[in-house]
């Protein structure tokens, strides 16, 4: 509503119910009834909760936190179930042979808005069938203190090599350099289901049963 330039501003009349002032006779001023009412409420809670604590029938703090009664969550021992897509500490997934799936493409560190991922790429040694097809991370470092847990690295990864499905919080440590997670540590984490690999299957370079023509099959 544009304000008029002249004259008093017209506001809509506020509508409400009128509440009468409390009486001031001696009985009301003594507050005996009100005190008794208050005590009734607190005592009701006391007896109910005491009974439930003794009988062990208090509501489940994990799954029914909004229920009446003592629903305190004893945190380190009890935890609320996280949503399925909760982004926890990163892990590096494994291939079937235990080597990292990561091919050191640096897509994650490119996508990372906090610039917390540092990767040094290396070439597979002579004779490895992955040589020439892929590279691998010699160093894979994530600074979990810098990380903002946005999950962009997971989205960016073309190989499903980095995941945040561990369900773990970043844990507290003594010094800052302990938060800088290296490749072996990241590879040691498992998903919330205890998996080190990923559900998405992958075919290794040169694997048997590979469809299509190859150079060796051609006559020339």
């Amino acid at each position: 509503m544009p304000l008029p330039l002249e004259g008093p501003v017209q506001y809509d009349r506020v509508k409400g119910t009128k509440i009468s002032k409390p009486g001031r006779n001696a009985v009301q001023q003594a507050y005996v009834k009100d005190i008794a009412d208050g005590l009734a409420i607190t005592m009701h809670h006391f007896f109910k909760n005491t009974k439930e604590m003794i009988r062990g029938t208090r509501p489940d703090a994990v799954n029914d936190p909004m229920e009446d009664g003592v629903t305190t969550l004893e945190y380190p021992f009890q935890k609320r179930p996280y949503p399925e897509r909760f982004r926890g500490v990163h892990r590096l997934t494994h291939r079937a042979d235990g080597s990292p799936r990561c091919v050191a493409c640096l897509c994650c560190s490119t996508a990372c808005p906090a610039q917390c991922i540092y990767i040094e790429a290396g070439e597979y040694p002579e004779g490895d069938k992955k040589r020439g097809y892929e590279k691998y991370p010699v160093k894979f470092v994530i600074d979990e203190l810098r990380c903002i847990f946005c999950g962009f690295c997971v989205e960016a990864c073309p190989c499903d090599a980095i995941r945040m499905d561990t369900g773990m919080h970043p844990q507290p440590y003594d010094s800052r350099d302990q938060f800088v997670f290296g490749k072996s540590l990241l590879m040691s984490f498992v998903s919330a289901d205890g998996e080190q690999q990923s559900e998405n299957p992958r075919r290794e370079p040169g694997e048997k049963g590979f469809a299509g023509i190859t150079r060796l099959g051609q006559h020339h």
């Binding site: 070439e123 040589r131 020439g132 097809y133 590979f210 469809a211 299509g212 023509i213 190859t214 150079r215």
Partner: peptide, 10 residues
């Protein structure tokens, strides 16, 4: 189809 495979990393 599978692509033609040729030498890599030579």
């Amino acid at each position: 189809d599978e692509i033609v495979h040729k030498p890599k990393g030579v």
